[in-house]
Amino acid sequence: MSTINPLTDILERIVTLHRNEVRLVGVEYGLHPVHLEVLYYLSRCNKFSDTPAAVTEFLGTTKGTTSQSITLLASKGFLNKEKDPDDRRVTHLVLTEKGKEVASKAIPPVVLINGLEQLGNDSEALREQLETLLRSMQKATNSASFGVCKTCKFHQPVSDGVFFCKLTKETLDLEGGELLCREHTIK
């Protein structure tokens, strides 16, 4: 009798199929999956999390791999490097329209979106279960959560259109609450 949990086999297959679909989109643009992951992350993160260090932490790659990926993506016109106006030591990575287009095309793959749509009402229960699994793994590996801002303990709604971040002491628009944040702390 096997001691492997069937769920691990299912998750492994989903991850492999996901990776293969992402790889196929990358071939079209001469990009590797890690490059697409950088683009996708930058398309989903907030202004506090669009730095090379945040990309490195999110992807769990080396500084060298991240630096090479950023250099390649910039040379191919997928992103621009911009110095922070308040702290010239900080570089922000800003997607170009081309970068945004590729990020939205590559991740999540269409086959995953279609599969999730087939779940119908069951998708919310699955989301909650997978989020519990993710949080458990992040805690066990001491990884940052990189969660959506509106789920952070520092997120404080002010009105229908804005919220206040108690960590950065900034008022931000509601759209920013839907983005990933490096500083995210679970409530």
Rank of each mutant, 00 (worst) to 15 (best):
K81V: 01
V15G: 09
G26Q: 02
S67M: 07
P108D: 03
V102Q: 00
N142T: 14
G176Y: 01
C181L: 03
S145P: 01
M137P: 01
V162M: 09
D9V: 13
V110W: 07
D173T: 13
D173L: 03
D160C: 04
F58T: 00
L179Q: 11
L179W: 02
L93E: 05
K166C: 01
T8G: 07
K47T: 05
D160V: 04
S43M: 08
E37T: 10
I10R: 04
L24D: 12
T51M: 02
P157C: 13
L116R: 11
T185F: 00
I10L: 09
L126Y: 14
G60T: 00
H18M: 15
L79H: 10
P109T: 01
L134K: 11
S159A: 03
C165V: 03
R88F: 01
A125V: 11
V22C: 02
D84K: 04
D160Y: 02
T71L: 09
V110D: 14
F146H: 07
N142H: 15
T8S: 13
Y29W: 13
S69D: 13
V110I: 05
S49T: 14
V158D: 08
C152M: 05
V55L: 10
F154Q: 06
S145N: 06
S104F: 11
T56L: 05
E82F: 00
V162W: 08
D86H: 09
R89N: 13
R23K: 11
Q118N: 13
Y41G: 08
G161N: 09
L31W: 15
N80T: 07
S49Y: 07
E178D: 15
K83R: 11
N80W: 05
F48K: 03
D87Q: 05
G115V: 01
S75R: 15
L73R: 09
G176A: 08
L119T: 00
I70H: 04
T168V: 02
V148S: 08
